[in-house]
Design a protein around this nucleic acid. Sequence first.
DNA 1: TCTGGCTTTGAACAATCGTTCAAGTTAAAA
DNA 2: TTTTAACTTGAACGATTGTTCAAAGCCAGA
Lengths: 199, 199
Amino acid sequence: MANNTKFDRDQVIDKALQLYWRRGFHGTSMRVLQDEIDMRPGSIYAAFGSKEGLFKQALIRYTQLGSEHLQQCRSKTTSPLSALKAFMLSRVTDTQMSSPTCICLLAKTIAELTDENAELLEQAKASLKAMESSFETLIIEAQLAGELNQSQDSKKLARHVQINFSGLRTYIRVYGAQVPTEEIIDNIFAPYISNKSFH
Amino acid sequence: MANNTKFDRDQVIDKALQLYWRRGFHGTSMRVLQDEIDMRPGSIYAAFGSKEGLFKQALIRYTQLGSEHLQQCRSKTTSPLSALKAFMLSRVTDTQMSSPTCICLLAKTIAELTDENAELLEQAKASLKAMESSFETLIIEAQLAGELNQSQDSKKLARHVQINFSGLRTYIRVYGAQVPTEEIIDNIFAPYISNKSFH
DNA sequence: TCTGGCTTTGAACAATCGTTCAAGTTAAAA
DNA sequence: TTTTAACTTGAACGATTGTTCAAAGCCAGA
């Protein structure tokens, strides 16, 4: 064997992720990408195959970061409901401040792409379904902990959360910081808060 | 005066609208647009100024069609709430079947574009605000008619509807026809249905 | 130190991008 | 019928697109 890969793969994907997230798939040219990640076209194509290939890695990384962040929120509190709320709030406020755009990269992607990029579309859909599934896991925990009404189907609740979460992020993109994010997130769960108390 | 415009301006904008809606702003090239609307570049640029100019007209037309459709739903029933529900349902089911994509063109646009197309971004935001305002008008009517709880602020209710409407359309893009659209729309209003009955 | 095999480089490719404009066409006004 | 001003045409523009590949660079093992 000889000279191994020089660039830091994760770091490159992270930078590509930021760019794709900000400007979208079609709005991001390989030229801009080359400058941002400081790699020459040959290296990029050797490592990722194509513009689509790199985008797919960015989608996967985005989803992984999301899952990790959700777990992190979960580990910081004993309340599954608080963890879910904290996750939603931080995703929204973080992206309002520093991130490319408030809108979820996955939602942005399924809005932008067509069948012409079927593989990317499927990847984004699968990731969104996986996130919803993670939400459901937390919701079931919250139900067992007596935080959420158990009479509501956890799948329907997860769907409700997913819809309101993506809707909220679109809404914030329109109205900006004037949106009372915390109030809205509380209200997403308000109708399903359990009136039973355990222990 | 001499030779007047030959092409049907509204028809051209409608066709452009369909194309932009399906493929997005960056995903739609002027070449494809030329073929679709059957106009030569010179004519397009004489009539609309630029790719952005034509897109702006498409956004305006889309909003106008939306408003007209909402009014149409309103005139078909005495119930403001039913009208709003019918509007949401038909927007979602129509676009599932025949339209470019289930996702609202306005939401799609604010997801795709950046400050580099500031004018288009502002147009889309303004249109979304206008639609929300139309929702509020119907909500106030529904409150006065005793269909919706009057203790809820109509602005907050309109916001709730807007968030859930755009979220639902994104959700349907992921899951397709298996989504129980009608049930979800009913549930959007369920917590706010008035228990008082008038007359 | 030399060699072999992998990585990186960046000029170059054909294709396509949004846009322009001189020439041709058209029909109302004179 | 002639004039005239607006409209339409489509070849062509320079810039940029995603991608390729021969050449140069690099380091571990001999």
